[in-house]
Simulated scan of single mutants.
Amino acid sequence: MSQNLFMCVRFKAKPERRDELQARLLEMVEITVKEEGCLFYDLHVDRDDESIFYFFEGWASQGAHDIHGQTAHVQALVADAPGLTVDGIRLEFMHKISPTSH
C-alpha cells in the first residue's frame, strides 16, 4: 500500500514579476487539481509579504507526485522560475503526525 505524500512549495517573486508569478501559479492549480492522485493543491500568499506564495500539496503516493513533476506545466514553471523568483523554488516534504502516531 502506498503512503500519501504531503509537501509545501515556496516561491518568492521578483518584485516586477509578482503578478505574473501569481497568474502562473493560479493556472497550475486549475490544471493540477485534475491530475490523478492529487489529494489537494492549495495556493496561499504570505500574510506579511505578498511576494511569497506557497503551495500546500497532498498526493496519493510518491508515484503520483513523480508523474506530476514530469508534466509540461510543471517543467515550464521550473524552467521559468529563475526569471520569476528571487531564490528559485523551495520544496519541503512532510508527514502528518497525530496523537496516536508517536
Rank of each mutant, 00 (worst) to 15 (best):
V33L: 10
A79P: 05
D87S: 12
T32Q: 09
R47F: 09
D87P: 02
F53A: 00
A64E: 05
D48S: 14
I67C: 01
C38T: 10
S61M: 02
D80N: 14
R90S: 05
A76M: 13
Q3D: 13
M7N: 13
K12H: 14
Q70S: 12
T100I: 13
G63Q: 13
G37I: 10
F6T: 09
M7K: 10
L21A: 03
H68L: 08
Q22Y: 07
C8S: 15
M1F: 08
R17W: 02
D66T: 08
M1Y: 03
N4V: 04
K12Y: 02
K96C: 00
C38D: 03
L26K: 15
D19R: 12
L91Y: 11
V45I: 11
H68K: 08
F55K: 08
T100Y: 13
G58E: 04
F40N: 12
E92I: 09
D48I: 04
G63N: 09
Q70P: 00
K96M: 05
E20S: 10
V29M: 06
S61Q: 03
I31L: 14
G88L: 04
M28L: 15
I67W: 04
L91E: 01
C38P: 04
D49V: 09
E57R: 00
K12N: 12
V45F: 03
G88C: 08
M28N: 14
R24P: 01
G63T: 11
Q22E: 15
T32M: 07
W59E: 02
Y54R: 05
T100S: 15
P82V: 06
H44C: 13
F11K: 02
D46H: 13
G37W: 08
T71M: 01
E16V: 10
R17Q: 15
D19K: 14
F53P: 00
D46V: 00
L84V: 02
E57L: 04
D49M: 07
E16A: 12
R10Y: 06
F53E: 03
W59I: 02
H102F: 14
S98P: 00
W59T: 00
H102W: 12
L84I: 06
L84E: 01
E50V: 03
I89V: 12
E36F: 08
G83N: 15
R47W: 07
Q75R: 15
M1R: 11
H95Y: 13
P15L: 11
E20V: 13
V78H: 03
L43Y: 05
D49L: 07
L43H: 04
T100E: 15
A64T: 08
V29K: 09
V86E: 15
M94D: 00
V45H: 05
V74T: 11
M7V: 05
L25R: 01
V74Y: 06
H65S: 02
